[in-house]
């Protein structure tokens, strides 16, 4: 599934990385716990309700570069600036974590475990 299709399905807003929307996304991981994200060996798309600078820093360290913020969480300018330095894609949806995961799972995006 391409990022563009994901954005459409989630009725989402693209905050950063418009130029990468044709990339394919095969796997996703959903968590608000950054400690959990830091244990990943893989680099899936992250779906999270945690919207602060540490979300971006954690993704930087864990080499994750696509983030979907749920429940209308909007990244701040500081977050976008930091994410820009790391060539990330930041997307936001009004849908809940549960609905976001359900829609994407149903559309064929795979879990890690």
């Amino acid at each position: 599934m391409t990022l563009r299709e994901i954005v459409t399905k989630l009725n989402a807003t693209v905050y950063l990385g418009e130029e990468r929307l044709d990339e394919e996304v095969t796997h996703a991981f959903a968590s608000d716990l950054m400690s959990d994200v830091l244990t990943l060996k893989e680099t899936p798309m992250l779906i999270t309700g945690l919207c602060n600078v540490q979300t971006i820093r954690t993704c930087d360290m864990a080499t994750l570069d696509i983030v979907v913020f749920v429940r209308n969480k909007k990244p701040t300018d500081d977050m976008i600036e930091l994410a820009e330095d790391n060539d990330m894609v930041l997307v936001g949806t009004s849908y809940s974590m549960f609905k976001t995961c359900g829609l994407l799972f149903d559309a064929g995006v795979e879990p890690l475990y």
């Binding site: 950054m34 400690s35 959990d36 830091l38 244990t39 540490q54």
Partner: peptide, 15 residues
């Protein structure tokens, strides 16, 4: 609140 404090830090460092 910052997404940490789950008791995973030191074990993850070790890994």
């Amino acid at each position: 609140d910052m997404g940490f404090g789950a008791g995973m830090g030191l074990p993850n460092m070790q890994k």
